[in-house]
């Protein structure tokens, strides 16, 4: 049931985002500001109205000697995340919070404004080490 609802939410996100893709990177709310109580629900619920889900565009760059990439992944997303991030080709498990901020498995208790920021933080945290393949 939850898989289905997640997929439906992603479908809705993709539709709502179609017009945004061209406008470039969408910045999310600052992580320090407490989100409005209903924000998370509205941003992701298929029936939500008036509030655009936040999803950034793809990126592919070199950061501190590592290749970091991010892209929407409506089919292969781990746990239905819908956006995947790679460091030197290995997937970094990321997750979007209800307020639009992001975390990764190597910075799991600290929020970042975008998948790019979470990828860069992971590079710093990894100090050159390779990610292990996801289970």
């Amino acid at each position: 049931m939850s898989q289905l609802s997640r997929r439906r939410a992603l479908g809705a996100s993709a539709t709502a985002l179609a017009g945004l893709a061209l406008t470039g990177f969408v910045r999310t709310a600052a992580p320090s500001g407490p989100p409005a109580a209903e924000h998370g629900n509205r941003a992701h619920s298929p029936g939500g109205s008036g509030h655009t889900p936040t999803q950034p565009k793809p990126f592919d760059e070199s950061f501190k000697g590592r290749r970091i990439q991010g892209a929407p992944s409506h089919h292969g997303g781990h746990h239905g995340v819908g956006y995947s991030v790679h460091i030197d080709g290995e997937e970094l498990h990321v997750m979007q919070n209800a307020d639009g901020t992001w975390i990764s498995v190597v910075n799991h208790y600290e929020t970042f404004t975008s998948p790019r920021a979470v990828a860069r933080a992971a590079v710093v945290e990894l100090q050159g080490s390779q990610l292990e393949p996801l289970l």
Partner: peptide, 18 residues
């Protein structure tokens, strides 16, 4: 613990966290 960390999501099933 890590299995729950990775699967607990704000808009899906969540048990151990958030």
């Amino acid at each position: 613990h890590n299995a729950f960390i990775m699967s607990d999501t704000d808009n899906g099933d969540r048990v151990g966290h958030r």
